[in-house]
Structures are given as C-alpha cells and as structure tokens.
C-alpha cells in the first residue's frame, strides 16, 4: 500500500507543494513574531547574555 502510494505519487509536483508549505509556514511565523505586545518579551530575551554579569558574589 505505502509502496504503491510512493510509486504513483506525482513527484514532479513535489518542489511546488513543499515550497508552498514553507511559504505558508513562513508567513504565519512572521505574523506571529510581530504580534501585539510582544516587545517586552523580546527585550527580556535579548538581555539574557548580559544577565550573568549582574550577579557575581
């Protein structure tokens, strides 16, 4: 069954299908990354490399 599907799949469409899938994923990611009120979150995240310097004994 799986072999039959793989055998008869129209592989010439594969680059187009996969590219469309990625574009959808990418657009959704960009919209989500720029969601409302997310600036504070990123401000905290980008400061993490410097946080180890605050707390030396």
């Amino acid at each position: 069954m799986i072999k039959d599907v793989l055998k008869n799949f129209p592989y010439e469409l594969m680059p187009t299908l996969v590219m469309m899938g990625f574009v959808l994923f990418f657009v959704a990611m960009v919209i989500w990354v720029f969601r409302k009120d997310s600036s504070e979150v990123y401000k905290h995240a980008e400061s993490l490399p410097f946080s180890d310097e605050e707390k030396r004994s």
Partner: peptide, 9 residues
C-alpha cells in the same frame, strides 16, 4: 530578537 526567531526556524 524577532529576526533571530525567524532566522532559526
């Protein structure tokens, strides 16, 4: 940082 998320995924 936003760009880094897009970059990563």
């Amino acid at each position: 940082y936003r760009l880094s998320i897009i970059h990563f995924w």
